[in-house]
Design a binder for these strands. Sequence first.
DNA 1: CGATTAAGTGCCACTCAGTGGCGTTTGCGT
DNA 2: ACGCAAACGCCACTGAGTGGCACTTAATCG
Lengths: 198, 198
Amino acid sequence: MPTSEPPVTLRERKKQRTRQALAETAVSMFTEHGFDATTLDALVDAVEVSKRTFFRNFRSKEDVAFTAARELWDAYLEALGEAGGTGPLLDVFRDTMLATLGRMDQDWYRRFPATLRLIEQSSSLDGYSRRFCAGVQAEIARRVGDPDRLELRLLVEFFLAIWNCALAEWLPDCVPGELPECVRRAFAAIDDSLRLAR
Amino acid sequence: MPTSEPPVTLRERKKQRTRQALAETAVSMFTEHGFDATTLDALVDAVEVSKRTFFRNFRSKEDVAFTAARELWDAYLEALGEAGGTGPLLDVFRDTMLATLGRMDQDWYRRFPATLRLIEQSSSLDGYSRRFCAGVQAEIARRVGDPDRLELRLLVEFFLAIWNCALAEWLPDCVPGELPECVRRAFAAIDDSLRLAR
DNA sequence: CGATTAAGTGCCACTCAGTGGCGTTTGCGT
DNA sequence: ACGCAAACGCCACTGAGTGGCACTTAATCG
């Protein structure tokens, strides 16, 4: 298997606890005082670790705030690898996303909306998010075919575009159960969208 | 008219000269030594202005590198305002882009590919670019209809997705005359793209 | 069980992007 | 020619992110 299992040693568990404490505290502090207004010094002070330790666990301030979203895409890419399935690629993308959303736990549905609101609020975090999704895009294209083929590249761009719109619809309330419906609606709107005229 | 014409005073011309010198020198230095590796201190030193002056002219390091791309979108939004035209919105978006590309001068076709290569090279600049385009997206949606309508939002997302793909096709060579053809090909690929299966 | 090893951490000094304050220059209008 | 305000230079500062090194502590092995 490609994913090497980490040894569940005490040292590893400790490190994961720190990681989780940082991610958890970060999102709550960012939510309370704003992403840009919260300094890393304040964060590492609250978690009682050194700034150096923070950067051993996360690449950047944006990275730690993006944890929940990264978990989703990790799960999505894994699901895309497993479930082969045939038929229209766009349907595969949609169904894989629906399946992935179904597998995320309750805690994730608490943390993910918080992350979305942070992204909405901070332009630097927004930039990070978009850049990250572009990376996911490239990875998806690489996995399902020739990533240099115009049609495939376009299709994957479309998929992420649709996902963005689904999130935009979901964002105001963020009721966990409604997200799949938002995704379905966004996918269903493609044809009408392309036919829009003025 | 909404665009207030600036008084063509000497002071204004001087300021524009430093602006242009900064943008020009920035792109050439970034191209030569890399975006991330070039410090602002080195740039303002080369142009012989203070760092303070740089930040009075540009919001950030990314901003100055993005000048050519911003010029395109400024021209695009202006063109979208003027040329009404009716019919499918997607055709309007495409034709407006083709018209805009036709109006850019030779110097722009020298600077724009340089900017694209910088974006390709630097992740922070890439993030800035994507965030900027998201703003353009919102502005386009606002101008042609109800920006909260799912179908419209989706369509504008699609347009930017297509544009990205067109640029990706153009990027290797960046022959000025070929860009419109890349745009047309990307738009023409939509149907085949959506029908892709595995 | 005790010694060795190395992962993980804390501390410190550093670079670089970006901001605020303030005094000075310089073009503009009268 | 003179007063005004825009633009500028200089300086000190914050905050993100990095590199180096000593130290702690958990894993490993005799």
